[in-house]
Design a protein around this nucleic acid. Structure first.
Lengths: 140, 140
DNA sequence: CTAAGTGCAAATCCTTTGCAGTAAT
DNA sequence: ATTACTGCAAAGGATTTGCACTTAG
């Protein structure tokens, strides 16, 4: 139970917190590997799970089969680009705004809500632009 | 492109639409296998992907590593039990209520929203009850 | 007949785990 | 010393895919 200090764990957490890219495990590994050559992917996974338990990191969800994380743990919605998989924050909206409505009642069979996740899907700026003129289909 | 008729495809769709359990591929396979012994899991997966493209089915998200689907395609929030993984509908709330706010503005870099997914996490009635008196820790 | 659908098994991909060695307390 | 942390590689589980065969149009 008692947790010991670990440079690698610190590095993994810092990597997650230092980016807005909502990274997956592989990204963290690739990013840290150059400066910590002895790092292994298994350690990245193990430490991510530690952070999730501690609440130091939250999961944004799964994009293209890969779980993505966020070091900003205050509840806020996310935008996910269906085309490139980019994940963006939507800081303006509080995640709590609608939760009350649901918590107030109408919940099936005594369901107790803990937290909410809201994700908006669509196209990021770049992909929206490129979608106008598809790569190969440069016709029209 | 032209799609042909397929009894197995029909069966998979009906299976998804006939339940409120928001099934995963394996559940669909297990459910249909007895009545269609020649069914294979690969076919289930292939057809699910067809439905997703067509919009006949939507993905609720990934629960415990498994993707879960919903035959009710009108946007509505879901409840997911963190303990048993059960997925429930929250039919009272329209999924559109908050989307406008986000679509109105403040979107980073020209992001274009297509649709939204809202999921509430917590404990379903049964798990909330059982959580009071944990299986092994029958103390207190 | 031609193209789409399917079973089967192998292949992928992401993630977890067992074990033996390393590091922190 | 004791216990946690880690590398490595194998294991696991979900999903996809190639290929030969079947079936719908």
């Amino acid at each position: 139970m008692g947790r010991k200090h670990s440079k690698k764990r610190d590095a993994v957490l810092k990597a997650i917190q230092s980016t807005h890219s909502h990274p997956g495990a592989q990204w963290i590994y690739d990013t840290l590997k150059p400066s910590i050559p002895s790092l292994s992917l298994g350690t990245v996974y193990r430490n991510i799970n530690v952070f999730l338990e501690e609440g130091a990191v939250v999961s944004v969800g799964t994009v293209g089969g890969e779980e993505r994380f966020d070091g900003r743990v205050s509840p806020h919605p996310h935008l996910i680009c269906c085309r490139c998989g980019k994940v963006l924050d939507l800081p303006c909206l509080s995640e709590g705004d609608g939760a009350q409505a649901a918590e107030a009642g109408n919940l099936p069979g005594g369901f107790v809500i803990d937290y909410r996740k809201t994700v908006y899907y669509g196209l990021c700026g770049e992909c929206a632009a490129e979608a106008q003129v598809p790569p190969e289909t440069a016709g029209s």
